[in-house]
Write a protein that binds this DNA or RNA. Structure first.
Lengths: 203, 203
DNA sequence: AAATACAAACCAACCAGTCTGTTTGCAGGA
DNA sequence: TCCTGCAAACAGACTGGTTGGTTTGTATTT
């Protein structure tokens, strides 16, 4: 007999929904399809989530946010020399990336571009997540600056914002055209940019 | 008496649909809403377009493509020194930008991120448009290289790909957080990157 | 016993697309 | 120039499937 396990049920719904949203976008994601894939019924769904929109918020907070923290924030905290290690980190990321991410790109940016201007609840949560990400970059850059890897006159907050934009842009273009050439261009030119932040660079 | 004017009718449908798609995405765009706004009926719509998807293709080819050519490709062709003029062009673009673009970002990238992996017809048309854009950048960069504004060992095709990615990334982040700070960060750091391509730069 | 955690039938609104009929534009003949 | 036939250009009612959400009932847990 299958025992009732609310936490597991909720988690199953969340994970299935995350995959569906990642693939089809929030508007393209269908509640019925989530139920079909997870083998559950409407009763289970609307017991755990008030609406499709609230499910979206939950995906953002309980699936995407931990993912960002695991894939980006945690590794960033271990970096000493951003100029050298950031491009290198991109390489390792390109190798470790899951098929779903290769195929559908960054789930945060996808949701951001689709829903940020349509729903204020999404907007605030997304902006908050991006801020976390920018801050993580800023911290690494400032640490690198203190160690002399980066010029003193570099605005680390500005560079951090730029880096997040660049990464999302690169992932986005790679999603359109799955060519190694596209990823290589972004990886190499990002290294070029990072080098230009070094003290011995002419600025 | 309102005379029949098929070309004007089609154009009206296309323009209204473009605005709706820009605001709500392709999946969020409603045929009924387009008809309501344009004051037309189903008969008119399905006389001019075979389906919603074909309308999407038409928007891409007859609205977005000319827009890209007008806003990006044409001005790029007039640039002599990319290192100086590209950041400057971004400034003027930030001033001349329409409210709709401010609000909803780049219509090409929006459509790309939403539909490229869901529909092959979109995928091919979008990839083709991005290629045009990359090529335009590449041409400018190579011209600048011949005039000595850019180092000889710079891979212009790679830089062009990177620039398109960066721009889409910057526009995308600005769409999420409408702050002057965000746009300034992208504009300034792009100038930093461009400078690093100059001959006197240490690479 | 009471609250929680579901199953499953049900519903109303929505939405892309169809169908039928009507009006308009226009080419060609008298 | 005027009439006529016909195709193009619509209007508008209709449809069938979809979709988010509700409701009622039941099993499980505490």
């Amino acid at each position: 007999m299958t025992r009732k396990n609310p936490k597991q049920t909720r988690q199953r719904l969340l994970q299935t929904a995350f995959q569906e949203m990642h693939a089809h976008g929030f508007q393209g994601m269908r509640v019925d399809e989530i139920l079909r894939q997870s083998g559950l019924q409407k009763g289970a769904f609307y017991h755990h989530f008030g609406s499709k929109t609230e499910l979206g918020y939950a995906i953002l907070e309980e699936q995407i946010k931990p993912l960002i923290e695991e894939v980006w924030l945690a590794p960033l905290a271990d970096i000493n020399n951003p100029v050298q290690d950031l491009p290198r980190f991109l390489d390792s990321l390109g190798e470790r990336i899951t098929p779903a991410m290769r195929e559908h790109g960054c789930p945060l940016n996808n949701l951001a571009q689709e829903m940020a201007r349509l729903d204020d609840g999404f907007q605030k949560r997304i902006a908050s997540l991006f801020t976390e990400w920018v801050t993580a970059f800023q911290t690494v850059l400032e640490k690198g600056q203190q160690h002399g890897y980066i010029r003193k006159n570099v605005d680390c907050h500005q560079v951090a914002r730029f880096l997040v934009a660049v990464l999302e842009g690169c992932i986005g273009l790679f999603k359109v055209e799955h060519s190694a050439e596209q990823w290589q261009a972004c990886r190499t030119q990002l290294a070029v940019y990072m080098t230009s932040l070094e003290p011995n660079s002419t600025q």
